[in-house]
């Protein structure tokens, strides 16, 4: 199948320079933080791609780029062949595309307007895109959506603060579903919830995917959650994609030393009793990344080219990896 969502060499640099006057007076240069560098991947229709990586590696930035909250510094993002525009673009094409792409945010306490009734929150996409104009019909649709996420129609009369975190996240899901989207971006949708509620929300999301044929980009740093929901996995490190491939392959036989390190840090998924090794070393300062492969200061397999040359994302053993050691082995073998 062809790609539904496609990122081509997408980069995002934030200008974190001091204010103009300070720059001039203190003779400081402009400073850019490269939150996302040259990231390319595809998501097929109906599939779940998970993005994992340590805090600050640029996962949320990728999500925000895709929904148009940020404008890419370079590169191209297309959804179903159409260019994704900035979220403030009011052209007809941009609006039509925006209806098909929705996002679920990390913090269920901040993502719902505290002064709106839940029914109005859920109806907002419907009203914005004028999907239904009849009042009673909107009400019926909202009740139906509340039912989809296992809440009752009466809950629509309440305000967000009257709900628990898990319930709020389900309200967010109902709002995201209101415009009949095809692609949902979930930025750590369960990391603010406790474990039993996490499972409820994840199962709900999986059921909805089956029923409606949704495509997901699922962002998380919890590898167990990722294992539970995803079809394919992309691993990010310091703004770059270092390994991407099928879930079974990436989890079963991780190639990139960083992926291995992440997997070794969690209790063994198959319960073989292997001891867990904590993630070693620290993430380098994103303002001043090391030369060559950004992972080289922490890498157990580091050798000469790693500090000199940046590895490309190349196919190896049925997935794509950006690692000199892996490419050399593949070439040799």
């Amino acid at each position: 199948m062809s790609a539904f969502v496609k990122l081509e060499h997408v980069s995002k640099a934030f200008d974190v320079s001091p204010p103009w006057l300070n720059r001039v007076l203190e003779r400081k240069p402009r400073v850019f933080l490269h939150a996302v560098s040259d990231v390319s991947f595809e998501i097929r229709r109906g599939e779940t791609l998970a993005l994992v990586g340590e805090s600050g590696c640029g996962k949320s930035t990728v999500a925000r780029l895709i929904v148009g909250l940020y404008k890419a510094t370079s590169g191209r993002i297309t959804i179903d062949g159409q260019d994704m525009r900035s979220a403030d673009d009011t052209s007809e094409a941009a609006r039509a595309l925006r209806r098909r792409v929705q996002m679920i945010f990390q913090d269920p306490y901040a993502s719902l307007n505290p002064r709106w009734r839940v029914a109005d929150i859920i109806a907002e996409p419907i009203r914005t895109h004028r999907l239904i104009t009849d009042r009673a019909a909107i009400e019926r649709r909202v009740a139906e959506l509340l039912g989809c996420v296992k809440l009752t129609a009466k809950d629509g009369e309440k305000y967000p603060h009257q709900f628990s975190g898990g319930q709020r996240q389900r309200i967010s899901i109902a709002r995201a579903l209101a415009s009949n989207p095809e692609f949902l971006i979930c930025d750590e949708p369960t990391s603010a919830l406790d474990v039993s509620v996490q499972a409820q929300v994840l199962n709900l999301m999986r059921d909805l995917q089956r029923e409606m044929g949704l495509t997901y980009l699922f962002i998380s740093h919890n590898l167990q959650v990722v294992h539970h929901v995803s079809d394919r996995i992309g691993v990010m490190y310091l703004g770059r994609l270092v390994e991407i491939g099928d879930k079974r392959q990436v989890f079963g036989a991780p190639e990139h030393p960083y992926t291995r390190m992440l997997l070794d840090a969690i209790p063994d998924l198959k319960m073989t009793g292997k001891a867990r090794t904590p993630v070693a070393g620290e993430v380098p300062n994103p303002l001043d990344p090391p030369p060559g492969c950004a992972f080289n200061p922490r890498c157990p397999r580091v050798f000469e080219p790693c500090t000199r040359e940046r590895p490309e994302l190349l196919p190896a053993h049925g997935r794509e990896v950006a690692c000199h050691a892996v490419t050399r082995m593949a070439r040799a073998g």
Binding site: A87, V101, S172
Partner: peptide, 26 residues
């Protein structure tokens, strides 16, 4: 910068409506 405003932007709510109905009351 709160997520509910960003959610409204993702939905495609026009800026003046976001200012008036989301930001202003808060």
């Amino acid at each position: 910068n709160k997520e509910y405003v960003q959610a409204a932007r993702v939905i495609g709510v026009p800026s003046f409506r976001i200012m008036l109905f989301h930001v202003l009351p808060n």
